[in-house]
């Protein structure tokens, strides 16, 4: 950061229109997160491929057609999709220098994220009772690994955004916080993208 940019951040005056891109650190962080998304795309693709290869190996357990509960999946999908919208509304609030709007919408995103996780845990408990377990069959292992990895990413995301909300609540908005919120929202959209593939490839294709 140049001296001029540092001074501006300290005075926390009106930030420029796209505050996340106003500093070299900010531009680096955004690019870094996009690159990370590229890497995670390939990683999740490997878990998807493994799932597709093994989803027929249910052994004594239920098949995909018998097992998946579409209404619950529809609700989960709605929750995550809405949370993606609320996170972008949060970014828009940041661009509009409306920090109350930003904190509100990111807060809603966190709540929706926790609801998604709660629903997903409930769903998994149901599946275990139906005989679909992690160690019971190759299908089970592949299913829970793919969905579990996604869930772990959701958990990391809600904790991350919560931490950022605490920071901005205590210190106020600045040129430092802007790229952090923008990157977190990119990350959040990405896990929604993964969910789009999950509900399509795992649940919907499982019912066909």
């Amino acid at each position: 950061m140049s001296t001029a940019e540092l001074e501006q951040a300290k005075t926390s005056a009106k930030l420029p229109p796209h505050p996340e891109r106003a500093t070299m650190e900010g531009r680096n962080k955004i690019l870094g997160l996009w690159l990370f998304i590229g890497a995670e795309t390939v990683m999740f693709a490997c878990f998807f491929g493994t799932y597709l290869a093994l989803k027929g190996s249910n052994l004594d357990g239920p098949t995909t057609q018998e097992l998946y509960q579409i209404p619950m999946v529809a609700i989960s999908t709605l929750i995550l999709l809405v949370s993606s919208l609320t996170s972008v509304l949060g970014v828009l609030g940041m661009h509009q220098n409306n920090y109350k709007k930003m904190m509100l919408w990111f807060g809603v995103t966190v709540l929706l994220g926790f609801s998604f996780l709660g629903l997903e845990i409930y769903e998994f408990v149901e599946y275990v009772h139906a005989g679909h377990t992690f160690a019971g069959s190759a299908f089970g292992s592949a299913f829970y690994t793919l969905l579990g990895t996604h869930g772990a990413h959701v958990l990391f995301g809600v904790l991350w955004i919560s931490g950022l909300l605490v920071q901005v609540w205590r210190r106020g908005m600045s040129l430092d916080m802007a790229p952090k919120f923008f990157s977190a929202s990119l990350y959040w959209h990405f896990i929604d993208v993964i969910w789009v593939f999950i509900f399509t490839v795992v649940y919907l294709m499982g019912k066909v």
Binding site: V42, C46, A135, S141, T145
Partner: peptide
Amino acid sequence: FGFPPLTAGLFLIMFERLFGANFFDVAAGG
């Protein structure tokens, strides 16, 4: 782009060895 597949594979083999998962065991459908 090349390390994530290794990350994925290492997770699979770690889950199989440590937590009883069945990705590669033919008898369990792997």
